[in-house]
Design a protein around this nucleic acid. Structure first.
Lengths: 213, 213
DNA sequence: GATGCTATTAAACATTCGTTTGAAGCGCAA
DNA sequence: TTGCGCTTCAAACGAATGTTTAATAGCATC
């Protein structure tokens, strides 16, 4: 029977693993680093998880679950909310999460690494977490574009929206070197979110119809 | 005196290093892998370069130089070219490079890794290669937006453009799992480039003025 | 208090990897 | 040919790392 204390130890290792893997990657993040940060013996990894790889899988799932919990995907779908308001809400929510480096920053770093070097762990994450958001944004796009779009154009619109948010995380090192002021403070981030919203809204509402459809 | 043969060996190691580092990252890409692929002895790394880290630096610079050579940044600046045509040209050129997996794909992968986990090698690359492109796109944006933009909004517009292109590389694994058809064939990639161009053009030409400026 | 299961520990093991070493190969000039 | 400098090689070294082991401690139950 696993005690309450053991469960706490397990979660401490899981959290330390997430932070270490996020900062240094799977290979560079050593078991000794993780256990040192968690304050446990190195054998704990083998005791609680099978090995380092299984620990990585669980840490990734744990990070996603915790990120979902703290930054819930609350895209208002009610009747009284206009599509533009839903769009603004989504973009701000998503961007704030991506730009957050302080308390929850390692989740995003870890996920970014996983996307760049995908393992088998990515498949269920894409299906269970990313796809619903993709679908929600697609519904917003359909409502905002004044004419019908073919399926591929629709997907590309959604990707254009995600891309404008994701660049602030993926190219963060370049931004910090070239234009640090646009993401420096909270008010700058709000302004960035507002910009992305206006940029997307202008594009969607004025997108020309695809010829031949 | 270094012979012609030695120079070829050096470059073979450099190229193999770029491919291996791109595929597996700095830490996972072993010296033995690189030398095996290059068909040379492991001691060659220490002979031609100082050590693995110095090899990585040189491989990164080499990759950038070769990518610049094969995909030259030829943004037409002449009088007779409209800003919209320059934008289309830039986006297509940039996107095709990002989506190219075949002969030159490892350059982009390597650079993406470096941006995510930046080392000291990134600073000169940003200054010498990325900044000029950023500046060129900014000049195009100024010409396309019908009113004056403050500096920060201008930077964010440029980032919106880059982000819409970069997402096709950074989130490639997710796209491949969710919507592979939009980047599958050459004609799909052309359609993607055209979409990004139209999306950006619609946004820039209809972007509302920032209040209070 | 004895017993048995769980949790934790220090130490060691086996492997991998970057790096070094010393010798051998090779081209070329004297 | 001989000698010399540049290049390549096989082998080994030392450090780091994932994993295992066997012993110890903690703790609930009887």
């Amino acid at each position: 029977m696993s005690s309450q204390l053991a469960e706490e130890t397990r979660e401490r290792v899981l959290r330390a693993a997430g932070e270490v893997f996020a900062e240094r990657g799977f290979r560079d993040g050593t078991v000794r680093d993780i256990c040192g940060k968690a304050g446990v013996n190195v054998a704990s990894v083998n005791y609680y998880f099978r090995n380092k790889e299984a620990l990585y899988f669980e840490a990734l799932s744990f990070a996603f679950a915790e990120a979902e919990e703290r930054y819930p995907f609350d895209c208002p779908e009610g009747e009284g909310v206009t599509p533009a308001e839903r769009l603004r809400h989504f973009i701000r929510n998503f961007l704030m999460r991506l730009l957050d480096d302080t308390h929850l920053g390692w989740h995003g770093k870890l996920i970014t690494r996983e996307i760049l070097s995908p393992t088998a762990a990515l498949v269920p994450i894409v299906d269970s977490i990313m796809r619903p958001r993709f679908d929600a944004v697609r519904r917003i796009v359909i409502q905002l574009v004044p004419h019908r779009l073919d399926d591929d154009s629709l997907e590309r619109c959604v990707l254009s929206i995600f891309g404008q948010c994701l660049v602030y995380r993926h190219a963060r090192s370049v931004i910090d070197q070239m234009r640090p002021q646009i993401v420096a403070g909270p008010e700058d981030r709000e302004a960035t979110a507002e910009h992305v919203f206006r940029f997307v809204l202008a594009a969607l509402t004025h997108l020309p119809p695809t010829p031949g459809i």
